[in-house]
Design a protein around this nucleic acid. Sequence first.
DNA 1: GTCTATAGGGGGATAGAC
DNA 2: GTCTATCCCCCTATAGAC
Lengths: 199, 199
Amino acid sequence: MVKREDSKRSHLIDATKDLLWECGYEAMSPRLIVERSGAGQGSFYHHFAGKLDLAKAALDEVSAEEISTLDRLFQTKKGPLERIEAYLRVPRNAFKGCRLGRLVHESAIEQDELRLPIKAYLDRVHHHISACLREAKLAGMIKQDMDTESIASMFVAIVQGSYVLARADQSTSTMKSTMDGAVSMLRAITNPTSKRTAR
Amino acid sequence: MVKREDSKRSHLIDATKDLLWECGYEAMSPRLIVERSGAGQGSFYHHFAGKLDLAKAALDEVSAEEISTLDRLFQTKKGPLERIEAYLRVPRNAFKGCRLGRLVHESAIEQDELRLPIKAYLDRVHHHISACLREAKLAGMIKQDMDTESIASMFVAIVQGSYVLARADQSTSTMKSTMDGAVSMLRAITNPTSKRTAR
DNA sequence: GTCTATAGGGGGATAGAC
DNA sequence: GTCTATCCCCCTATAGAC
């Protein structure tokens, strides 16, 4: 391990990050990675113990990147419900799926090396939404009998599920419709007295 | 093609149905199928053109089975919102995922042979939920400004997404929590005047 | 229809020169 | 650190006997 521009090492990781998104883990062969990265087989096995090890390194970076993007998204001066809505409305690549969530159904994901970075990301999404809901509840913006934890889980699931529907339909309109439904739920739990924040 | 008990043919399909659920498509090798089914390679390629062809046959059956189960679930005398809640509360194998939805992120799913049976099932779920919502709306049970189509999409997504969260957590509690959230949404859109049906 | 034997190709990993 | 050459095994499919 050296500075940061290991050149080949980082190229290998970058290629793997792309391929994990495009193909998933099982369908991603070392040959493909090497080809895409411009490195040789030797560099691959010099820097990494194997495919799993490289995938872990790549997925750790993806998770960190997505968490960072997420943190920035929720770091606005907008009201809590508007922040959730902004998250729901973020532009998404419906066909490729969530960079992390799309991997959960592969067998290899049962190994913690791959599972934990995914879990970390999804937990973070839940954390932000949950925090927003609690803030909104405290401010009296939403009904007081709402369970913020489970509703936050629901919103996380909606986004992940919308990718599933989009892939099955091979169209973007279902994802759009799903998000419309989600936003209307956000309005439905909003107290009528605080219209400004909900809209 | 003969009667129905082709014996080996149906054994091959049955084994494939199991393996698609356990491993997915890419990770499911003809060798595994043959082993599991008790048939020889010869029977495999006598009855089917290849892996894709067998998977299509198996997935068609899975889709038909799940649709049939679904139709029965929604075919009760209960109120429309109670039928949706019953769907949300149906026992699910959180770890293995939806028999159909779990496959959408595989590359091979872009081929219509595999995609369409999945889409047919998800469309059917949407159809039932949407019908319930329209019925509820007509009866004045839910708010009149609710868009039944997009809310139905949202509920379908919630179930699919809850499998994603469960796989990432390797626990059943997140799925449970997600469904709690979904049910509370159902209550949130219910008109206070018609408490009986919502609860 | 069902079986065993076999083939071609790619997946994942190693050896060893530079 | 990086490269090319090579290995073994399993994946998918075919051949041909019974």
